[in-house]
Simulated scan of single mutants.
Amino acid sequence: MPSDAPSRPIQIAPSVLPADFSKLGEECQALEKAGVDRIQWDVMDGQFVPNLTFGPDVIAACRPHVDLLFEAHLMVNTPEVLLEQYVQAGCDLLIVHAESTVHLHRCLGQVADAGARAAVALNPSTPVAAIEHVLDLVEMVLVMTVNPGFGGQAYIATMEPKVRELRELVVRRGLPVDIEVDGGIGPDTIGGATSAGANVLVAGSALYRDPEGLEHAVSDLRARAEAAQAGAATA
């Protein structure tokens, strides 16, 4: 991250994929108590990615249980067909994949028209140039650090230069854009992602497998990320 770049606040955004689906409302409450900043819903359609996960009714049932921001990561083909349902379900921010729609600019506009905040995601093989001309329509860019569709995958460290390129671009343009990373984020990888310029960190398996519990996992990841961000700012 450029040393003169303003630091955006670190946010921990758990994925609920590893949670107990039979009690998702309680799981969301436990995450809120643990101090997370938002909750990410990994929405999969069985086509853009192999698995099927959360429909809007499931998310709507969990919405009254917590006050946290809900973001829907739409790993679906033709998200423009579904997005209004996820806004109505209580998602505050919708993440649309650049690869999933023919008319990305129009789709991001539809998110705003539906009353939600827009974000765009990039698969590992998709370059930053693919979203360069829609950055004015989003408040966040998600750089996938795994190939989407499965939890528990290994972090792809070669995505860090891509994160750095994106951070330099938004700083150069003076855009108030967060950079999120998703995939393989844990104690050993969060520093590299944050040093490269990410400030919203999605963690799933690393949170749930911490033997000291969710609260420890969240505080540990936050501390590591903030230390890495501070070190990058002074480098």
Rank of each mutant, 00 (worst) to 15 (best):
T78F: 02
Y155C: 02
N77D: 10
V171G: 01
L31W: 03
L207A: 10
Q47N: 14
R117M: 12
A233N: 08
E180G: 01
T78M: 03
F54K: 03
G55W: 00
M1A: 13
I156K: 02
P18A: 06
T158A: 07
N123M: 11
H103K: 05
Q88C: 10
D113L: 13
D4L: 10
T145D: 05
R106M: 06
E168S: 00
A89E: 06
H216L: 04
E215V: 15
I95Q: 01
N77C: 13
P124T: 10
G25K: 01
R209A: 13
G191I: 08
A196Q: 07
E80I: 10
E99T: 11
D57A: 12
C91D: 02
L69Q: 12
L142R: 09
L108T: 11
E180N: 03
Y86W: 15
A130S: 12
A5S: 11
A235K: 04
E226Q: 14
T101P: 01
P124F: 10
E71P: 02
P50N: 13
G152S: 04
V87F: 09
D37N: 15
V102R: 14
I179P: 04
G46S: 10
Q29V: 09
S7W: 02
C91E: 00
C107S: 12
V96H: 01
S22T: 15
A154I: 07
K33F: 02
L69R: 05
E80D: 14
G109K: 07
R167Y: 01
L135V: 14
A232L: 08
Q85E: 15
